[in-house]
Nucleic acid binder design. Structure first.
Lengths: 106, 106
DNA sequence: CGGAATCCATTTTGATACTG
DNA sequence: CAGTATCAAAATGGATTCCG
């Protein structure tokens, strides 16, 4: 979790600081569907994926569970706090669909 | 407006492609309040501001009105399509407020 | 498999000075 | 005031190699 002092005053800016960056919203979209195993996201590289996940974990939005198996198996998912972000994903999806429908009319 | 072919299939990815980047959501937050004149946004530089606004205009989300006065006066605002993004800003604000309230409890 | 660690290229962002 | 132009700095992205 962030320290209070690091957060902007504006709530929108606070949220942006948590899910900004090129990929976090898409990661969120995937985590929403199901806790999931490494790999399998669009065109994101391993480095960027793991970096993003670690930030989300340190912000209290995602968790990681290691099954301690061989071969390795881990699982990522949203914490309860993380699930509170789902309305953001939904409003993005709504707008995306609307935008696409407008585009297609023309 | 974007061409259909440039848009990702996923609606979330579509929305992210429109409001991604470090500043667009904050610009959207400001445009929401009122059509407004240049300058006066947090710590954003003129260059980034104008670059972002131009992208938003070319995507059909924002408009620019030039009053053709001396000294120059222009006004930026959201198009009707742009206002359809406001639920995104609202969900961000809701989450931001929630996150801050959690932080303060600890 | 699920990473970690490097190294580097590209993209974004930002600071400053200048113009009509 | 509302921008341009230029350049520097920083964030981000990606490829590759290595490890338990």
């Amino acid at each position: 979790m962030r320290a209070k002092e690091e957060l902007p005053e504006c709530p929108v800016a606070t949220a942006v600081s948590l899910i900004g960056g090129k990929w976090k919203l898409l990661i969120l979209r995937n985590l929403k569907e199901r806790p999931w195993r490494f790999n399998d996201i669009d065109g994101i590289s391993q480095k960027v994926l793991i970096d993003s996940l670690r930030q989300m974990m340190s912000d209290g939005l995602a968790y990681r569970h290691d099954y301690h198996e061989q071969p390795p198996r881990v699982e990522y998912g949203l914490t309860e706090l993380g699930t509170k972000m789902l309305p953001i994903v939904n409003s993005l999806a709504d707008f995306g669909n609307y935008y696409k429908s407008i585009i297609e009319q023309n």
